[in-house]
């Protein structure tokens, strides 16, 4: 069994008011030297069966049509071995 991780981020040109709010709070908390914060979403999909090309193609379709709104967001897909994540 494998885990597929889909990261969804606002496109660089889209204003991220939530990320900005986090960034503005940093100096108050004593964190200096962070010039920008962008906030995104991470989806962890537990896949039954092999993560082959066909499975990844379906996940790509899912990410493109549902998990991300490509009008404002980009996404990346990567496979993570579950055994690795557990150790």
């Amino acid at each position: 069994m494998a885990r597929v991780v889909v990261d969804v981020m606002l496109k660089p040109e889209i204003l991220d008011p939530q990320g900005q709010a986090v960034q503005r709070a940093l100096p108050r908390l004593g964190f200096d030297g962070i010039s920008d914060v962008r906030q995104g979403k991470r989806f962890e999909l537990e896949v039954d069966g092999p993560v082959d090309e066909a499975a990844l193609a379906r996940i790509h379709d899912l990410a493109e049509s549902f998990l991300a709104n490509t009008v404002i967001e980009d996404f990346t897909i990567r496979v993570e071995e579950v055994a690795e994540a557990v150790k």
Partner: peptide, 17 residues
């Protein structure tokens, strides 16, 4: 309607949160 692509663009959180 924007999510369904019947209308263009989309909505983000209000800029003032």
């Amino acid at each position: 309607l924007t999510e369904a692509h019947l209308l263009p663009g989309t909505m983000l959180r209000n800029d003032h949160l």
